[in-house]
């Protein structure tokens, strides 16, 4: 099987029937030998939990965590903006910490607990941070938004945990909830629509300080 290949494949996924779910069929055995060995994909199984649901996939080792989510599990809330760790649109939480899912191989996440934007909240049942982004118009085109929100949730947790930042005045005292702290910590999430000022207001609302 090529592509999405979840063992416990859901009926919905089959019905969706994307190309990713179809078998590849024989791969032109006749011409295979012409290619060098390094072109033959290596398939591997990996199990992790996404938004509380156990998932088992058989994947090309080259599959990024981001593509596993978007193409194989069809969880397209996590976005591909650059695929090189330069924009933050793919931000997800792994074991509670935010990472760029584009720069991580899916097979490196055996046993991990992954939370994506879909796991934070759904339409009609928004996470408070999602609601704050909506109310403060902390987005425009919406493409960077899931990454911004995942980061925003993680940033407040990082502050709570006392992790310092580039702009913390003191390394030995706990960082404060200043706008400078929030801005610095959010800087790994680019918004070309330029909603930064509104995102700050959304985050300050959730952080418990009036914007």
């Amino acid at each position: 099987m090529i592509g999405g290949d979840e063992f416990d494949i859901s009926r919905r996924a089959v019905l969706l029937g994307g190309g990713a779910l179809a078998g590849a069929g024989p791969v032109r055995a006749a011409t295979r030998k012409e290619t060098d060995m390094q072109d033959s994909p290596t398939m591997m199984e990996v199990s992790f939990s996404v938004n509380g649901e156990a998932r088992r996939l058989r994947l090309d080792t080259r599959t990024s965590l981001l593509d596993a989510l978007r193409e194989h599990l069809q969880l397209t809330g996590s976005k591909k903006g650059c695929d090189h760790g330069q924009c933050g649109a793919c931000t997800v939480l792994v074991q509670g910490r935010r990472i760029n899912s584009c720069l991580s191989l899916a097979v490196m996440h055996e046993g991990d607990e992954i939370t994506t934007i879909e796991g934070l909240g759904q339409p009609g049942e928004l996470h408070p941070m999602q609601a704050a982004f909506l109310h403060h118009d902390g987005f425009q085109c919406g493409y960077c938004t899931p990454g911004q929100i995942c980061s925003a949730v993680a940033v407040l947790a990082e502050l709570q945990a006392g992790i310092p930042s580039h702009v913390s005045p003191s390394l030995t005292e706990a960082p404060t909830l200043s706008e400078a702290e929030l801005r610095e910590r959010m800087s790994g999430n680019i918004c070309r629509c330029g909603a930064y000022s509104n995102i700050m207001e959304a985050m300050r609302e959730i952080a418990g300080e009036p914007a």
Binding site: S104, L171, G188
Partner: peptide
Amino acid sequence: LAADARVRRDYALLSRALLAGASGQLRNK
């Protein structure tokens, strides 16, 4: 490494250097 209390206290420039690099997401990995 940047958040380690000993590093913050005794090797502050190392904490500072780490925190000046990349982004929060990248530093987590």
